[in-house]
Design a protein around this nucleic acid. Sequence first.
DNA 1: TCACCAAGTTGCAAAACGCAACCAAAACAG
DNA 2: CTGTTTTGGTTGCGTTTTGCAACTTGGTGA
Lengths: 168, 168
Amino acid sequence: MAKPHTQTCPIAGFLNTFGDAWTLLIIREAFYGATRFSEFQRNTGIARNLLTDRLTSLVDQGLLEREDIGEHGTRYAYQLTEKGRSLVPVFVAMVQWSNENIYSEADAPVHLIERKTKKPLKPMRPVSTRGQELVWGDIVAIPGPGANRAAIARIDASQPADNLSWTS
Amino acid sequence: MAKPHTQTCPIAGFLNTFGDAWTLLIIREAFYGATRFSEFQRNTGIARNLLTDRLTSLVDQGLLEREDIGEHGTRYAYQLTEKGRSLVPVFVAMVQWSNENIYSEADAPVHLIERKTKKPLKPMRPVSTRGQELVWGDIVAIPGPGANRAAIARIDASQPADNLSWTS
DNA sequence: TCACCAAGTTGCAAAACGCAACCAAAACAG
DNA sequence: CTGTTTTGGTTGCGTTTTGCAACTTGGTGA
């Protein structure tokens, strides 16, 4: 990015890693099983120099692992780490949102199904501890332990938290 | 973006709208309650010309609505549409991922809690129709009705679907 | 030996970004 | 009723990032 976000904020933090046109497409390929430089390149259409940058950055951040599989020749395998695999909920939520909002009713290009039953996944929705589905109105953002003055100001400015304090 | 993605893919489609450093920060502000140009500008730190671009684009795409509230003076309110509010699952999934993976254990800058009980939300995970939590290995991507030849090739290339067909 | 492949690197033009300055319409202050 | 603010922009311009093609390096296979 031109200038990384400095705000203490989960979304800003997320964007510092994924806020560009290609990184999540590389993650998609990794989920779909791609491991090789040329595979990522072919399947996404990204320019080679950018792919080099992004792969390096993803490895540096611990989302991918680069393994030398070149007993014979120049060959590397890029694999999702546990941290990388933990993006599944975000990935699925994005796919479902796009299927519901970009493509018309039954025109989704890709469906995610349960391997065992071959049925589509349930649409992901935020739920309470007791499993109750929640809409945005049921949810409040409150400053957490790591919030600095700026973050607290930003959050409270728009969501006057009436004596809410975070309890684990 | 320099060149929008042309792949028929939910992630590529998502990135065509949100694959930049600022758009999701604007959506964050909208969720937190911001409505005014200057409010978005102050709370995100985005440059004014870029904010103009992004707001116009979000309105064009039906994610925000611009209402003229200028009975007196130049005043507009940007509000999330229903389509915009439907980003909640993606938004929550991102916040939870960042809280779990960027910040150390109890250092999250923001927590999302249920308004009524003041308890944190349950971590969002993909689940089967029967409510079973799934990891990536339990999930398969298959071409949907809207997949073109390229999309099918891309998906099948890495995930040899053994006679999987999509059933609603 | 010669062609080929994987995984990059390099150079360069075009696009996007970031910043500060400017602008217009309406309200507000004195 | 004149000068100053406020809001919501637009314009210019230098810096960064993209996108694309060409080149490189190490190893393989025929």
